[in-house]
């Protein structure tokens, strides 16, 4: 049932505004792709183009090698979960799930079997006859997913489906969603602005900004080797500071000297991204490879302690494990250790 999707040079203009520019993307059969980006980056527009609700200004969509760009949305055979979930309020749970089957002319008995099967999969076997309004947030969520999966979609599309849930429930639903997707083996594209959600769900992470793809790859790879300062900053908490490359190729930033960095040489300014968790806070007397900073703000989050530490002009966000850090208080002088091997360097 599963299919692969290829997006070739898709652009979209709304009047004179360019929402998407020349998007290329490969979604492998059975994989889970997350489109991640800040609001207004074009990720929802791209999903709506895939679904067929928007028409690309240029470019093609290939489904198993077949161009579907001009196929109307109701003939694409995709399942979609909307941000508002968009359950039909005048129908029962069973009617909602069976709606797509009914349209496909499937007989009543098979419809009932399929509804029952899906309700079992989403672990809500007893709610078939309930009106949608009588469901809790998490139940609605599952029904919306079941409705989209009932038609055995070629492609499973989700537009920020978990954004309305509270944090705890959202985390559970993420796990469930991932398990369901594996179980059905359906090729999936999910749009989110929540980086934790994207990291946890995706086989392939696509970071978008201002209508272009900034980076695409496995989540861990994108996290460890961000392609540019934007990605480093957007994914996780990173400090992007200015640095210098000397004629010899040595890099200096925050008074730290890093050798042998493969970088465009030429004395140009560069940007260095340092992850908040890769900065170690030490006693300030220890001068070896540490720099001095002043604690400006501390918050204890339980497992982690987050602080903002001023080093010269720069204000660094630091995340330390609560057990491993010296007790911090505002105004305190501390030493910081930064391993250049864990930093990312970008030409400016």
């Amino acid at each position: 049932m599963s299919t692969d999707l290829k997006i070739e040079g898709v652009s979209k203009n709304f009047g004179s505004v360019s929402a998407l520019r020349d998007i290329d993307m490969n979604v492998e059969k059975g994989s889970f792709v997350c489109l991640l980006g800040p609001s207004g980056c074009g990720k929802t527009t791209l999903l709506r183009i895939i679904a067929g609700f928007e028409h690309a200004t240029s470019g093609r969509l290939l489904l198993d090698g077949v161009d579907v760009s001009n196929v109307p949305p109701h003939k694409r055979g995709f399942g979609m979960v909307f941000q508002s979930l968009a359950l039909f309020p005048h129908m029962s749970v069973a009617q909602n799930i069976a709606y797509g089957l009914k349209l496909r002319g499937i007989d009543k008995a098979s419809q009932r079997d399929r509804v029952e099967e899906l309700l079992n999969v989403i672990e809500l076997p007893t709610i078939a006859d309930r009106p949608v309004a009588a469901l809790s947030g998490g139940q609605r969520q599952r029904v919306a997913i079941a409705r989209a999966l009932a038609v055995q979609p070629k492609l499973f599309l989700l537009d920020e489906p978990l954004s309305a849930l509270d944090a705890k429930l959202r985390e559970n639903m993420q796990i469930e969603l991932r398990q369901l997707q594996r179980k059905f083996g359906v090729t999936t594209v999910l749009v989110t602005h929540d980086q934790t959600e994207a990291m946890m769900l995706a086989d392939q992470l696509v970071i978008m900004d201002h209508g272009v793809v900034r980076q695409s790859g496995m989540p861990s790879q994108v996290y460890r080797e961000p392609a540019d300062a934007f990605v480093a900053d957007f994914l996780g908490t990173a400090n992007v500071v200015k640095g210098e490359v000397s004629e010899s190729g040595a890099v200096t930033f925050l008074g730290i000297l890093a050798q042998d960095k493969a970088l465009p040489v030429g004395g140009a300014g560069i940007e260095v991204a340092i992850r908040a968790e890769n900065i170690a806070v030490v006693e300030c007397e220890n001068p070896e490879r540490s720099i001095l900073g002043t604690v400006e703000f501390v918050r204890d989050l339980g497992p982690n302690v987050e602080s903002i530490i001023a080093v010269g002009e720069e204000k660094l966000r630091v995340r330390s494990r609560a057990r491993e850090v010296v007790s911090l208080s505002a105004g305190q002088q501390v030493g910081l250790k930064i391993d250049p091997d864990l930093c990312s360097f970008f030409s400016r």
Binding site: A51, H74, S84, L103, L157
Partner: peptide, 14 residues
């Protein structure tokens, strides 16, 4: 909500 309409369309309704 327009999404309700789109939901029906995505499920195969003209």
């Amino acid at each position: 909500d327009i999404e309700i309409e789109e939901a029906a369309i995505s499920l195969g309704a003209s």
